Amino acid sequence: MELPKVGSLGEYIRQQRQQAKISLRQLAAQAGVSNPYLSQVERGLRKPSAEILNQIAKGLHISAQALYVQAGLIEDRQPDSDVLTAIRADVTLTGRQRQVLIDIYESFRRENRADTAQPTQPAEHLGDDPVLPYDGVTPQTREG
């Protein structure tokens, strides 16, 4: 996940807060920290713990992993897919809508990685769920 390059974690948090149209006071309340503390974080004067970063991420409706990477707490190993980049770049969505889409997308990716990690066994049924033709009639009931 390639994050936009900014000077610091604090600048990144401020950028995300402004993009979400949340005041410093609102974010501080949602994150359970004082206004002065959050202001100091945004100015690079304080380095928040992972727990505080998690609360800030929740308040911003972004992934905590994005803040952990920006803070240097974890290494960013997997590049973003074009889907994630598009979701994050879509300014017509609210922060909450973007996060829900990202969460759903990531859950599908985790599920598929788990499926490919399992030993292959003979499938009882092949393919995905049946797809009905556009008229809603299954091939077996169609008269021809």
Rank of each mutant, 00 (worst) to 15 (best):
L3Y: 01
P4M: 04
G7S: 13
G7D: 10
S8Y: 09
G10F: 04
Y12R: 06
R14K: 14
R17A: 01
Q18H: 01
Q18N: 09
Q19M: 08
A20K: 07
A20L: 06
K21Y: 06
I22W: 02
I22F: 06
S23P: 01
L24C: 02
Q26W: 00
L27D: 00
A29R: 05
A31Y: 01
A31Q: 06
V33L: 01
N35I: 14
P36N: 07
P36T: 12
P36C: 12
Y37A: 12
Y37G: 13
Q40N: 04
V41A: 11
V41P: 01
E42F: 11
G44E: 03
R46M: 08
P48G: 08
S49P: 01
A50R: 03
E51L: 11
N54Q: 13
I56A: 08
I56W: 04
K58V: 09
H61T: 07
S63P: 07
A64W: 00
Q65P: 00
A66T: 09
L67D: 09
L67P: 04
Y68A: 10
V69K: 08
L73Y: 14
E75D: 13
D76G: 08
Q78T: 10
P79D: 13
S81E: 11
S81C: 07
L84M: 15
L84F: 03
T85S: 13
A86M: 05
A86C: 07
R88H: 11
R88V: 06
A89K: 15
V91Y: 09
R96W: 04
Q97R: 15
R98S: 06
R98E: 02
L101C: 07
I102R: 03
E106A: 05
F108N: 06
F108V: 13
F108D: 05
E111D: 14
A114W: 00
D115T: 11
T116K: 15
A117C: 04
P119W: 12
T120L: 12
Q121S: 06
Q121E: 14
H125A: 11
H125D: 12
H125C: 12
H125R: 14
G127D: 09
G127N: 11
D128Q: 12
L132F: 13
P133I: 07
P133H: 09
V137S: 10
T141L: 05
T141Y: 07
T141E: 15
